[in-house]
């Protein structure tokens, strides 16, 4: 017993050493720049809070923060709802079929974001495929307006980011021991109960990974909303970009970026609480 403990302990030590390079990399390229951005937002050149006062004055920036968060949340939830069954299927079919399906999932990622965004413009436009088809079948008399609205933004972003949801979910589900499901059925649970009480909790790390990935990328999205969105679809990344490259107001851009980071962390923390991963994991290992 004692020797086993020592073994485990030294194993942890070794793992810690192996983490050292990535920790150093993160310190230099992540922690240091974040600290600099933090300082930049408060010193201009003397100590000042006027960048933050400017953000909370009037409602332009707050409104944009709110819109950005809502779009990112909506995109992440849609990706989850659409991606979960796909990942389930991928993990369930024979490996040969899974390989082909997986290629189909990854394939769109080889095409540039700009090209995929333009493809949506062709599909959704006034004379686009969607409107032409609907009008051909006499379902509508006038073209409906989808392009240059928030609907188009969410639709295009979901399509672009979907693979990033499916892949972590698939990796997680592949590791779930299917015998547990059988055991649940044998013990008398129905299909739904087995799913909600056994499979779903076991897949929650995958959900969290996929959701985090999609959410973080979509909250900084830029080109797609600018191209397919309407006039109200302003994302915070657009404002940060114009502050940096056009107006050279780096202190203000830093303040916006820092608040964006805090908002992102808060929302992810909230999601974590909502899904309750800690609870689920502890229920998995009652000891």
């Amino acid at each position: 017993m004692g020797s086993e403990l020592v073994k485990v302990k030294s194993g942890i030590d070794l793992a810690a050493y192996l983490l050292l390079p990535i920790l150093m990399l993160l310190c230099v390229f992540m922690l240091f720049p974040v600290c600099r951005i933090f300082l930049m937002s408060f010193f201009d050149p003397g100590f000042t809070t006027h960048h933050y006062a400017e953000i909370f004055q009037g409602d332009v920036y707050l409104q944009v923060f709110l819109r950005t968060s809502i779009v990112a949340l909506l995109v992440s939830v849609c990706c989850l709802i659409l991606g979960y069954p796909v990942a389930y299927l991928l993990a369930d079919v024979p490996p040969k079929t899974a390989r082909i399906l997986l290629i189909l999932v990854i394939l769109p990622m080889w095409i540039g974001i700009l090209v995929r965004t333009y493809a949506w413009m062709v599909l959704l436009g006034r004379h686009g495929f969607l409107n032409k088809t609907l009008m051909y079948f006499d379902l509508i008399a006038e073209p409906i307006k989808v392009l240059f609205t928030s609907k188009a933004v969410v639709l295009a972003m979901v399509q672009i980011l979907l693979p990033l949801m499916i892949l972590p979910l698939y990796a997680n589900m592949k590791g779930i021991d299917r015998n547990l499901l059988k055991a649940s059925r044998i013990l008398g649970a129905g299909a739904w109960r087995t799913f909600f009480h056994v499979f779903l909790p076991l897949s929650s790390p995958g959900i969290m990974a996929g959701f985090t990935l999609v959410f973080i990328i979509s909250i900084g999205f830029f080109i797609t909303p600018a191209l397919v969105g309407g006039r109200k679809d302003i994302m915070i990344a657009m404002l940060i970009e114009s502050q940096i490259t056009r107006l050279l107001n780096w202190g203000f851009a830093a303040a916006l970026a820092l608040i964006l980071m805090i908002v992102t962390l808060l929302i992810l923390w909230g999601f974590n609480r909502f899904i309750g991963i800690d609870k689920l994991i502890s229920s998995m290992n009652p000891r």
Binding site: G58, K232, I234, L247
Partner: peptide, 10 residues
């Protein structure tokens, strides 16, 4: 004007 422009857009 950039800020006012965004406000007007929203």
């Amino acid at each position: 004007l950039m800020k006012e422009w965004h406000a007007w857009m929203l």
